[in-house]
Structures are given as structure tokens and as C-alpha cells.
Amino acid sequence: MEPLRLILLYAHLIGFALLLGGAVGQYVTGRTRINPLMLWGAVIQLVTGLGLAAPLRNGDEPSPAKLATKLVIALMIFVMVFFSRKREVVNKGHFLAIIGLTLVNAAVAVFWR
């Protein structure tokens, strides 16, 4: 099961890169719009995160509180991206919240042991 977990982790990191890279790229250009990279990144993050939460390891699973926190944040990001994807311009605060929540989700993954 370790190879499957590593593949899911790799895909999860790619989703993070798509989401954050797409968002920062849009923000730097001054055009705050949800692009397809952000949508795909949010979907990949959510799906692979659920796969990574499955008990695939031998007693080394993350705590349920950590998993629940990451799931809530990932769902918030997905909802914010999905329902704003057709707008020509997204409110700057809304857009910065997507970037901030993405970074907070990564921080939870790294620092919560």
C-alpha cells in the first residue's frame, strides 16, 4: 500500500501547485478571476486528500482532528473556487481568502503532528 500512498501524495502536491500557482499567477497580473488551473487544483486536492485519509498505513495514521480540519478547509476552498469560476472578476478579498486558505491547509499538513 505504500506505493499507492506515495502516488496519492504526489498527485496531492501537484493539485496544491496548480491551485496556488494559478491563484498567484492571476493575482500578480491584477486580474482576479478563477482560472481552470485553480479549479483542477481544488478538485485534485479534495479527491487525493480523501484518498490519503484512508487508513493505508500500519498504525501511523494522522489524527482524526487533523483530517477533519484539513477536510473542512479543502471543502471551503473548493466551494469558493467552484461557485466563483464563471465570474469575470472575483472580489479581491475572496481571492486572497482562497490563497490564504490554501496556505493554511498546507501549514496544517506540515506543522500539525
Rank of each mutant, 00 (worst) to 15 (best):
L96I: 09
A53S: 15
G49I: 05
I99S: 04
F16C: 08
Q26V: 01
V47G: 10
V47S: 10
F111P: 00
H12P: 09
V28R: 09
L6E: 14
V43E: 05
V24G: 11
R113T: 10
L39I: 10
L9G: 05
V24E: 01
M76G: 13
V104W: 10
D60H: 06
G21Q: 04
V90F: 02
A42E: 04
P3I: 10
A53I: 12
I44P: 08
A97G: 07
L52M: 15
T69P: 03
Q26F: 00
N35C: 07
I99G: 06
F82I: 12
A109I: 09
L71V: 07
E61V: 01
M80K: 00
L67P: 01
L19P: 09
T102A: 15
A65T: 08
W40G: 14
A97N: 04
L75V: 14
I34G: 03
L18V: 06
V90M: 09
A53R: 04
R33S: 02
A107H: 01
R87N: 09
L101H: 03
W112C: 05
G49K: 07
L56N: 05
V108N: 07
A65G: 08
V81A: 09
P36N: 00
R5L: 14
V90C: 07
R31L: 08
L103N: 04
W40M: 15
A68W: 10
G49H: 05
L56D: 02
G15P: 01
K86G: 05
F16H: 04
P62F: 14
I73F: 02
H12A: 12
H94I: 01
G30T: 01
G51C: 08
I73D: 03
V24H: 03
A54K: 11
V90P: 00
V28L: 11
S63M: 13
E61K: 01
A109W: 02
M38I: 01
Q45T: 13
G49Q: 10
M38P: 00
L20D: 04
I14P: 09
V47M: 07
V81T: 04
V24M: 14
L50I: 12
H12L: 11
L67Y: 02
H12T: 12
M80L: 15
L20E: 05
A42P: 05
M1I: 14
V108L: 06
Y27P: 00
R85T: 09
A109F: 12
L39Y: 12
K92G: 01
V108Y: 12
K66W: 05
L46M: 15
